[in-house]
Amino acid sequence: MRRPMLDRRSLLSLGVGAGASLALPRGLSADTGKTYKILMLTFRGETDVERGFRDLLDTAGLKTEIISRDARRDIANLPSMIADLATLKPDLIYTWGTPLTLGVAGPFDSTDPKFIRDIPVVFALVAAPVQARIAPSFAAPGRNVTGAVHVVPTDVQMKAMQSFMDFSTVGILYSTSEQNSDVIVREVKAFCDGMGAKVLARPFKNDASGRPTAEGVEDMVAQLRADKADWLYLLPDTFLGTIYDRVTPAALAAGLPTFGAAELAIREGGALVGLVSRYYSVGQLAGTKAVEILARGTPASKIPIETLKRFSLIINMRIAKSLGIYPPIAMLNYAELVTG
């Protein structure tokens, strides 16, 4: 069987919902003279996301005054960060991640007055805004919130995995306590059913308080390999993210290639390959939303929440060499090779 050859464009645009064109609207770069005040709320300092956001506003020719405040990785700091909103009067609030966004804007169906409903909020790096009840749907947020989602659709990830190396069985380790993981496991199963492949989804063991533990993960990985898994898919599971250092060495020892859903999994977590949204590009995407709100006056409620149109393939060559599993040569045309 010939492995499906996908070029970067077709691979990376698979399964992505069609959205409005993201090209900068014409005439937007005109100097409108007004300086817009943006309150930027970050969770762990400024990252590439914010760089992309700022770069896009600059490119669009918007004059902005950005007030940046950081939660220092603690959501409890949020109230103090937005205490002076009444005097600050920002034209737009930028938020990083689900906790900050939810903390600022609240669920869409909440009537709690502490949530902000009169200032447009543009988020970046929220994985599942609908599940988190930030907005009722991607296409029409219907409220003062819109933004950029960074997760890569599951089926697009599966296709990338297949392009790297075809498979008949894929192994997954996940936490039963995480609703999001549950959804993704189901999506993986749906995709694999379509291509006639098997999914071995094994939950982590829970401790007495019902929280997942890393106990015996090495054996679980070895068992997946023994059960003929061709890939270990590292889904975006919060708990899994904390134990990469135990999972990937076990996979490497078992000769099991790993496909990571999060960028960190490949760069630092020892996964072989992954398809990710570039943080910089996610920031740019959020930037286009801000430009549309500020310069064009489109209400946030009418601007769809979107994912990127293209994603990036990252291959860890150190892992590839250890496993002796190399990417198809055509992938080198569009993959980023790291040696972390």
Partner: peptide, 8 residues
């Protein structure tokens, strides 16, 4: 050439 937003 286009970026990840498919903008030129």
């Amino acid at each position: 050439m286009e970026n990840d937003l498919e903008a030129r």
